[in-house]
Structures are given as structure tokens and as C-alpha cells.
Nucleic acid binder design. Structure first.
Lengths: 138, 138
DNA sequence: TTATGGATTGCAACCTAGTTGCATAAAAAA
DNA sequence: TTTTTTATGCAACTAGGTTGCAATCCATAA
């Protein structure tokens, strides 16, 4: 298990358990966003319970280790590269989903432009998903 | 049943059936985006089968009568105000979901600003969801 | 190093969302 | 009105996600 993994868990004051280590390592190894099913598949030889993986994701979300990326097929999750905390998830980067290979990625360098909401509206979270063809598939 | 409903079905060359009429009418009456569950609830006294409502939504999507709005709780649907066709859904407006009242709305007048994707990426669809407080709840 | 208390896991059971196949019923066309 | 085509209802199923609870594990402190 990599240093990154135990360091991260420690810094977020989470107990190091086999499931958490493996889930975090999987996010670190793969550069793309992962669904619960992806993780179940990736870690199937470790025989973690489905529920445990769900709870691990929930914990990581609450701590700000990962963030949600919803699309029309369901939810995916990706590591927060910026430092996030429970109260303040700031993910103003663009998400890209390839219609060919199915992968979803964070385009960390591409920020969502500021939007002028109508009078009375208050923004708390923003999520911009672009679907199309990625560099590999176009 | 309103004129709009039978006109719309006719213009998209869809058979007029009770379920389609009611679903379309419900979208017309409510200004907000609706989930499958919302429709089931709204039309529960008509006793349409769940599957029939799913298929109605699928048909409307394919024809370009409605479009999908995904968020972290699941899928919602809203009428396409612009004229859409099967091959070309163009929904470049912002979607807003209120964290207080839970309603999701199309902000038809607020267009998603153009995004400069990195070299090699091709956009086909774009979905911008802002979550926060709507005018009523802020 | 071991005991202990609080956090985490696994299991069973459950709920909702969404899909498929097929026989029946209803619309539109003839 | 009859035929053809399309849509519906039903049963059955898969996948995603949640809850309660007993057993287990981790970190801390003795």
C-alpha cells in the first residue's frame, strides 16, 4: 500500500482499514472517475461487502476526499485534487464523459465560467458535465 | 385534455393514448422538472403501469419532446421548449436545483457559456446544474 | 503488550429505479 | 368494420442504494 493512502487516511482522521485503503488506492491508480460498481469489480477478489464499499464512499464524500459526478447513467466519484472539507466542496472544474469509451474524467485545469444567476438565486454547488469524444476516441 | 397535448403528440407522429396525454399534460401543468416517481405520484389515480410511464418517458426522450436532467439523486425530465429532434438535442441552458424545496428548473434564458475543451476533445452534449437556493427559498 | 471502548464491518433484509419478454388491448389505416 | 400496427399491463428480473444489528477490528491508554 502506498504512502499516499495511509497519509491521506491519517490526515483526515480516519481509521485505516483494508477496505478504505483499497478503495483509496484504486482511485489513486486509475485516473478516471469510478462508480460503486467499478470499485466492486476492481476489488472483487478482496470480497468486501457491497455495503462496506457504499459506506466507505459516503465517508470519503463527507470528509471531502472524493466528490460526486452525476450523469444520466448514475453516480461516479473522483478524488478531490484541491483540498476540500466537509462544509466546503469547491469543484468548479469541468467533467468530461466520453460517449465512446464511457470514461468520465475531471478536467482539472478547465474551470466553469462564472454564471450570472437571476435575482434571488444563490449558488452553492456547480456541476458541469460535457459529453462527447475524448482525445483517445475522437 | 388541452389542445397543446393532442397537437404535440400529433406533430411528433405519436399515437394518442391516455398515458401519453396525461404525462404530457403533467409536464405542461407543472413548471418544474419531474422524475419518474413524480409522475407516478401525480398520476396514481389513473393506475398506469410503472413500465408504461417508463416507456412513455423513453419515447418522449427519443422524439425530443423532453430532455434529461441528471443530479446526484437521479434523473428528472423537463419539456424541451426549443424544438428538438431525435438526432439533435440542443439544451444549452442552465439547470437549477434548490437544496431547500428540492425543485429542479430549467433557466431557459440562461445559456451555458462556451467552453474551450482541450485539444482532441469533442463536445456533443452539455449539462450544467447549479444547486443552491431558489428565489422562493433564499 | 494487552485490555478496552468506540468505530467499522458483514450479513440479512429491505426499498426504489429501471429493464425485458410476452400476451392482450387499443389506435390508426384500409 | 376489419386488419394491421403499436402500446399497454403483468410478471419477473437486475442493479443501486439504505438500515439495523451483532460481531469484529483499530487506536488509545494502561
Amino acid at each position: 500500500m502506498e504512502q499516499f493512502v495511509s497519509d491521506t487516511l491519517k490526515s483526515y482522521q480516519l481509521r485505516t482499514t483494508a477496505c478504505r485503503e483499497n478503495v483509496l488506492q484504486t482511485f489513486q491508480n486509475r485516473e478516471t472517475a469510478l462508480s460503486h460498481g467499478d470499485l466492486e469489480e476492481a476489488l472483487k477478489d478482496r470480497h468486501f461487502d457491497r455495503v462496506t464499499i457504499y459506506r466507505t464512499l459516503k465517508t470519503f464524500l463527507e470528509k471531502g476526499i472524493i466528490h460526486k459526478i452525476p450523469d444520466d447513467e448514475g453516480l461516479r466519484y473522483a478524488l478531490c485534487r484541491e483540498q476540500c472539507v466537509e462544509a466546503d466542496h469547491h469543484h468548479d472544474h469541468v467533467h468530461f464523459k466520453c460517449n465512446e469509451c464511457g470514461q468520465t474524467n475531471c478536467l482539472e485545469d478547465l474551470l466553469v465560467p462564472p454564471i450570472n444567476l437571476p435575482e434571488g438565486y444563490q449558488a452553492q454547488e456547480i456541476n458541469l458535465l460535457i459529453q462527447g469524444l475524448c482525445e483517445k476516441c475522437s
